[in-house]
C-alpha cells in the first residue's frame, strides 16, 4: 500500500522535495513510516526525523489533516496523506 508524505519547514529542504509517495507495509504506524524513511534516506533527513533512535518529539505530524499525537499507536491506511513539519518561527 502507498501513502503520501508532505514535508514542511526544514524537512522540505532536507528531503529536497515537497511531497513523495511511499510504499509501506499494511497496518504500519505513523512512527513506522517515519522510521522507514529515515533509515532509507539517511542524513540530513534522518537527523531531523530521529533523535537517539526515536522519532523526534519536536515534529508535528498530521494524518489526513488531523494532528497525530500518538505516532506509534496510529496506523495509516492506503492512500493516506501525512504532513510532517519541523517547527518554524517568526523573525
Amino acid at each position: 500500500m502507498s501513502v503520501t508524505v508532505e514535508w514542511f519547514g526544514q524537512l522540505r529542504d532536507a528531503a529536497q522535495v515537497g511531497e513523495e509517495d511511499l510504499e509501506t507495509e499494511p497496518a504500519a504506524s505513523v512512527a513506522d513510516v517515519l522510521r522507514a524513511i529515515a533509515n532509507a534516506r539517511g542524513a540530513p533527513l534522518s537527523g531531523l526525523l530521529l533523535r537517539g533512535g526515536d522519532i523526534a518529539r519536536t515534529l508535528f505530524v498530521s494524518l489526513d489533516d488531523e494532528q497525530v499525537t500518538d505516532l506509534d499507536g496510529t496506523t495509516v491506511a492506503d492512500g493516506a496523506r501525512l504532513v510532517v513539519m519541523t517547527p518554524i518561527s517568526g523573525g
Binding site: Q10, G47, L48, R51, A56, R57, T58, F60, Q67, T86, P87, I88, S89, G90, G91
Partner: peptide, 20 residues
Amino acid sequence: LHPEIPPAWKREFPVFGAVS
C-alpha cells in the same frame, strides 16, 4: 504542538518579506 525546543532551529533562516 511542539513539546521541545527544536535543536536544529537557527535564528537566521531563509524567507521573503512577502511571506512574513
